[in-house]
Write a protein that binds this DNA or RNA. Structure first.
Lengths: 230, 230
DNA sequence: ATTTTTAGTGTTATTTTTACACTAAGCTAT
DNA sequence: ATAGCTTAGTGTAAAAATAACACTAAAAAT
């Protein structure tokens, strides 16, 4: 037992993990096994330990509950409504993360404590526990905003991708169609994509060239004041 | 005394308050009266009560320590380094706020507990307590980024302002010179400024027209997908 | 009345953005 | 082998946005 002179809220973290599955943008949810909100879906998360930052806690919980590691992650927002958790006062620092779904054998391992983990399409989410619907809204808006002026979209694609895949990704996130020629002109003119001596395989039509994102070059340009903008 | 089954970090808030003084961008600091960091300057802040959100806590602390009320405020980031406070584990949710310095008789009232409050120019800050230098860095960068795609600059100006004041403000925040004619063309073309039937007073040169920002119109346009961009 | 200081105003060249349609390549089915 | 399907890949012209640039107007101070 731990005692303090003044009462303290509990501190938790929650993670909104985005993944791309061909032409669907998805988020990972966990089915709650226990009350409150037993049977509801929620973002993976948990309480912060005393010897870890909130970001470390988010990564640890993610690893524990889903096995996912080494993803791009960023702090989203801290939710502190007094009644957001019926068990008592819990303040939660939310993170959002982007993962290359291709990295996982499409099967996120069921967590140790028998909760189911599943990817849901972003515009077909089931009812969510706590204030997680609100958290999702903030996360999705952040993603939409950020993708336009930082090259984070690449975190959702495999290492090697085609320009059509990249375009489709942006169309999904921004929720509007883009002109193929203009898109290619723009993205190639930034000089951040490396054309690989390879083409797409296993498609039943003309195979597209593969590209990769030159992160090193981006970091250099960024330091010189270049700013990515789509 | 309050007892919990697991240890909990303490939860605090800190506020970075920006104000504009003619041609200087300033932030408000409080001189710490007690250890740790007695004599150092720090951002106003304090611990979160059990019946208030972090934003409410930030506003309450600000009111208590400086008398400032009704400012534009937004959550900045949550700082959770394990050793950021020598007294023990303290996680702090930082906010930043913009105030019309003209609203205060240029004298922020000394707080109840005899700490001094003072406005410092953003590029001449004294050594700061805790990780507040880091907090400031994040806040200033956020301000620089946000000012370009949201009309928050107006929160720093008096209700009625001249185009030159507005331009100077942007030059200060973005740290670069802007072309007078292009700036005016652009900002007026948005149709968000209302020309008042008044001019500047008490200046020893040609008096400039006064304008005000049409917040209502902005909200309307924003809802229709318009996006402010400078 | 002269000087000083800031307000206020348009045009042109350059760059960026948008709109738009056909051929190329590879696979599939016959 | 050929016809058909599907996606890859490519350029140009019009429109819009941005950038560069210098003088006159007004008010107060001398």
């Amino acid at each position: 037992m731990y005692t303090y002179e003044y009462p303290r809220p509990a501190l938790s973290v929650d993670c909104v993990i985005f993944g791309l599955n061909d032409d669907e943008l998805k988020v990972l949810l966990i089915e709650r096994a226990h009350d409150p909100y037993a049977g509801y879906w929620a973002f993976p998360g948990g309480f912060v330990d005393m010897d870890e930052t909130t970001e470390e806690a988010a990564k640890r919980e993610l690893q524990e509950e889903t096995g996912i590691q080494n993803m791009y992650m960023e702090q989203l927002y801290t939710f502190s409504d007094v009644n957001r958790d019926p068990r008592g006062r819990v303040v939660s620092v939310a993170y959002y993360a982007l993962v290359k779904l291709s990295d996982f054998t499409n099967q996120v391992h069921a967590s140790s404590d028998a909760k189911r983990a599943e990817w849901f399409q972003v515009n077909h989410l089931p009812p969510l526990a706590f204030d997680h619907a609100k958290i999702f809204e903030v996360a999705f808006n952040r993603l939409k905003g950020k993708v336009r002026y930082q090259p984070i979209g690449f975190e959702l694609l495999p290492e090697k991708f085609t320009l059509s895949q990249l375009q489709k990704l942006y169309e999904l996130i921004l929720d509007k169609e883009l002109d193929k020629r203009n898109f290619r002109k723009k993205i190639l003119s930034m000089g951040l994509l490396v054309e690989l001596p390879e083409r797409q395989k296993g498609v039943s039509h003309r195979a597209a060239k593969l590209y990769k994102f030159d992160k090193i070059k981006y970091k250099e340009l960024e330091a010189k004041g270049f700013s990515f903008e789509l």
